[in-house]
Amino acid sequence: MQRRHLVHLATAAALAGVALPAFAQGAAANFPNKPIKLQIAFPAGGPTDITMRQLADNAGKILGQPVVIENKPGAAGTLPAQQLQTSPADGYTLAQIPLGVFRLPYTTKINWDPVKDISYVINVTGYAFGIAVPADSPFRTWNDFVTYAKANPGQLSYGSTGTLTSPHLTTELIAQQLGIKLNHIPYKGSADLSQAIMGGHIMAMADSTGFAPLVAAGKVRVLNTWGEKRLEKFPEVPTLKELGINVVQNSPFGIGAPRGTPPEIVAKLHDAFKKAMDDPSYVQALARYDMVPIYMNSAQYTKFAQETFATEKALVEKLGLAKAN
């Protein structure tokens, strides 16, 4: 009886081993048969929202179903990634994964792992960052900014797109290197941040080039940018490295799915979004904000997540922002 029972178990296990891939392949063959939800970590109207809407529109045409954007701002851009932890692993819920996701376990108590508990689909782009001030600001140059900050510790207010976002942490890293203390005011995204600086609520803004339209309108002035080289749109503005600050930040981001999403569905999503990235309409949308395509396939993006998880820990600890045990 015992041997017969073991034979039945072995047969069932073998059948299950065959059935699972067949099921996954069947699910992929029919995928998608309804709209896909793509959650964005920042509010409507900013550079992330505008560029990702174009990408989603392109991908929806390729997949044959709409890719619908949902804005989930707040919590340093980590709400979409957190939403994946309670979403079905069927490919119909996707999330933008900003760099802040990899800092989360070091600053907040969570019960999930940013590397292991997300299926990384594709990296699509990164940001062009900088610090800008109102056009009528007395800070004509970055040196003016630093000189005032040194003479008035904690008095120079700057806004960012949220606490523990790349604009916030990078500005604090810059301040640490220069020995200055700034007053950080967090906002939910570029649109809110732009309104704040236009309303005179802050003295400076650290942001992606969501401030580009304000520069074009003559309302703000850029003091520095954070890439390896000067931005084409602001050729007269020095990089941090040119100013003697050894910092480069472009904060790559991409798209993730819930852990356990069938590989065939991940592959189908990857292929559609890769084709969507190559469409000139997406490249043009990125160019409005001096952003460029930064492509990583699923395997490369997973490796990037692993490496970034380690480097972000070092940054959080260096700035003294790690949570207490």
Rank of each mutant, 00 (worst) to 15 (best):
Q54C: 04
G218T: 07
V133G: 06
K229I: 14
A212P: 14
G154A: 01
W142H: 04
R3M: 10
R4C: 02
Y92M: 10
K241A: 15
L63S: 09
T311R: 04
P153A: 05
G210W: 05
M291E: 11
Q155C: 09
G200F: 13
A267D: 11
R4S: 07
A151F: 09
A24T: 10
N123P: 02
G179Q: 10
A95F: 10
T209S: 13
Q39T: 09
Q85A: 02
I174E: 10
E70Y: 04
W226Y: 12
N250S: 04
N183D: 15
P167Y: 13
S208F: 14
D278E: 14
K61F: 15
A14K: 05
R221N: 08
H168W: 13
T239D: 15
L231A: 05
H184G: 10
I131R: 07
Y148C: 00
G130W: 01
G45D: 05
V316H: 07
V101T: 11
P258E: 08
N152S: 00
A206G: 08
A76L: 06
L231G: 08
V248W: 03
K268S: 00
L84D: 05
K34I: 00
A324P: 10
S119T: 03
G100Q: 02
I202F: 07
G200I: 06
N58E: 15
G159F: 04
T239W: 01
P186N: 02
R230M: 11
M291S: 05
S298M: 13
A191W: 03
T165V: 15
A196N: 11
L9Q: 13
I265T: 15
E70C: 08
F139N: 00
N33D: 14
T107I: 14
K233P: 00
T48M: 09
L193P: 02
S137K: 14
I36Q: 01
A29K: 11
G244W: 05
D290C: 05
